[in-house]
Amino acid sequence: MRQPIRLPAGLLATLGFLWLVSSAMAQTAQPAATGFVGSNACKTCHVDIWTPFYKNPHYQSLAAGDLPPARTGCESCHGPGQAHVAARGGKATVVNAFSRMQPNRTMEVCLTCHGKDFQKSNIRRSGHTLNGVTCTDCHSIHHSPSAKFLLAKTRSETCFACHATVRAQFEMPSKHRINEGFMDCWDCHNPHGTFAPTWRMGSRPHMVDQTAANDEACLKCHADMRGPFVYEHAPAAVEGCETCHYPHGSTNGRLLRRPVLLTLCLECHNGGGTGTRLAGVDIQSAQHNLLDPKYQRCTTCHVRIHGSNADAFFLR
């Protein structure tokens, strides 16, 4: 009796075939090298850059030893160095002198290699690109003080250099722990651009990352709020956490948009609006006397406000 081909075996066979085909294609696709002099020529003058370069992730291209000249060492980014050597230096003779290049040109050079990275696949429509912010604005290839990612500044200071108002939010009493070093901006954001959000109307916010299951980035850590719940709090599921919370920091407790729950909840549960029900968001119960302190702190009773499996009013 014939056994059905198991998926792993089939997958491995497919991958092997693809490898062979691609190997053949890659061997025929290497461009001819013209004007390349090799990195040894560069280190003669640029000894300060060359000496610690083995610590740079880009050193891999040199260590590989079998890459074409256009993908090896200094010239993989800066272009063929023959003219530069012949002229005995000078920025004008560097094919890719990043300090003199237009932002889009800089990005194109970096994407030559990094364009294969899924995390950068949306870079062309990111807000950074549209506003002329390019790779070298945030990354310092040769003088990075950052332990990872060759950032131009240490960790989130890279982002704060431009986003001063966001920095101010992280210095508020209730905030996510960026300044404490517990997390980084890129825990929630992809500065290289993202796919359309699956919450709100699918157009904003920009550059907020998503979980593996396309949820809002908040749920990467706050997994207990994710559900699914039989009784979802529809604004949280549809419009996202920002309906009630500020993501960066707030002067209000728990990153809330209002200092008290009373108004935070009532601004939606006001008897009007649109809501998931045609008649509008439900007004609160007639039993709720707002002048009674018991009813001024909504989550005292509605404890499962992010979603419940047992009670339509999030009471348990």
Binding site: L266, N270, I283, Q284, S285, N289, L291
Partner: peptide, 12 residues
Amino acid sequence: GGLEFFAGATFP
């Protein structure tokens, strides 16, 4: 934002 709610000194 406009509000509607129940409140009262003796009963809502």
